[in-house]
Design a protein around this nucleic acid. Structure first.
Lengths: 244, 244
DNA sequence: GGGATCGGTGGTGTATACATTCCGCGTCTG
DNA sequence: CAGACGCGGAATGTATACACCACCGATCCC
């Protein structure tokens, strides 16, 4: 079944994910098939299917004796998830540098960095945030794939999909634009450096840079959380933290 | 539903896993619900449930439009999976060292190392392999948990469960005992060093040691594969490689 | 003769009825 | 009074019938 398939299970998956992320279904809560099915006006079968996939995503835990509970997240989980993402991406970057990359893949990610540059306008607050976010996600996707290993790519992307470790999860809202732009230009410099290290076959440096990139993300998040939690965008998973 | 639950879905899960691992259901093969259900003398429902979990384990891939195919593994996937395991365990070890560990957790893993020591007899080939294997698995489980983060522990264990990255996956068969014992004593020294580094709060050293431990595993595997593939135990996933 | 359309077939998706299991509560008995 | 047995309800597990969709081949029309 395709993610885009127009099935009840897919709708249920999306609905439930939204409710978990929004805190509507709080962490630790047990989910029962019958009420959920009635809520969504469908039968238990697609609900089970949806819950099974949410368990795969890490949003639900299977419980002994059957059934699921909503996983609980804490601030420390976000920090750890970002740390892990950095480690995994660092490995992808190192392997890419050590093994070498296809010229076209390198060209593609280089182009991606160039496009990210183009998101920055002349003025201090002039950034095309939507474009940046999309391209940033693309950058991290291509980075994961650079090492040429399907296994590594798969696991690195999984680490990025940890509900709260999304590459853009730490981006603040449109408020506080100026400070945010500085943060983004810094991240962009790191993007460039990572690609450069990979192209130069400097494995250790590429790994360290990718880790540093995630660490910057973590610091930004911590800074924002301390300053004003309402600045956080409500992206998947992160809302849980803000709420809790 | 518990892993040990006596349900048709659980039986189907175990059966299918066995068939995939043994190569009976080869990589790339699409799995159809109806024939599998007939084979197992059950209905489609528990078969679906089982396939869904196998997808979670990484043995099956969901295919566009519905259904599953058996994932294909290559030698390079094994190498990469072991590499990733080392990176993840290295992270767990580093975090444990940086953040400090509960005394009882440290005592437990130290005891584990001591028990591993006890697996080695006086003679050159005298090793209690079964005990070693079980304790080795325990060591890696406890190592993953040492950092105190549920998120990290979960992902590290997942990396170890990659079907071909099991800590014991590279252990050769009971043949060639002497060379094998040397390999195990080396691994045991690494175990000891990792715990020591964590206890001494040497984060970087702990990380490097855990990585080195995995790298040793990889080299052993490569050596064995070159020398004689029949020496490999048929552990989950690895059989695929040996067969293919 | 070629292309479009219309079934047929084979597969998953869904609903639903029924089975089973687990847990809690009450009662009965020693 | 305490412990065990049993009953009942609530939840998941399972089977099955049917819906639906995609693919494919054959036929029919242009």
């Amino acid at each position: 079944m395709d993610q885009s398939a127009n099935t009840h299970a897919t709708r249920a998956l999306i609905e439930l994910r939204k409710k978990i992320i929004s805190g509507d279904l709080p962490g630790g809560m047990r989910l029962f098939e019958v009420p959920l099915a009635e809520d969504l006006k469908i039968s238990r079968t697609p609900v089970r299917e949806a819950m099974s996939r949410l368990a795969e995503e890490g949003l639900l835990d299977r419980v002994r004796g059957g059934g699921f509970i909503v996983r609980s997240f804490a601030m420390s989980d976000v920090i750890d998830a970002i740390e892990l993402r950095g480690v995994m991406e660092g490995t992808a970057a190192r392997l890419a540098a050590e093994r070498g990359v296809e010229p076209e893949a390198l060209a593609s990610i280089t182009e991606c960095v160039r496009l990210l540059d183009a998101c920055f306008g002349a003025g201090p607050g002039q950034v095309d945030f939507d474009a940046y976010e999309m391209l940033n996600a693309r950058f991290h996707r291509e980075l994961a794939a650079l090492c040429g290993s399907e296994t590594v790519r798969r696991e690195v992307e999984r680490a990025s999909r940890l509900p709260f470790a999304s590459p853009s999860a730490f981006l603040p809202n449109r408020a506080d634009i100026d400070a945010f732009r500085r943060s983004l230009t810094g991240a962009q410099e790191q993007h460039r450096a990572i690609v450069s290290a990979i192209a130069g076959r400097e494995g250790c440096r590429a790994e360290a840079l990718a880790r540093e990139h995630a660490r910057t993300a973590r610091h930004n998040l911590e800074y924002i959380l301390v300053k004003d939690r309402s600045l956080i965008k409500r992206v998947p998973g992160l809302a849980l933290v803000v709420a809790g």
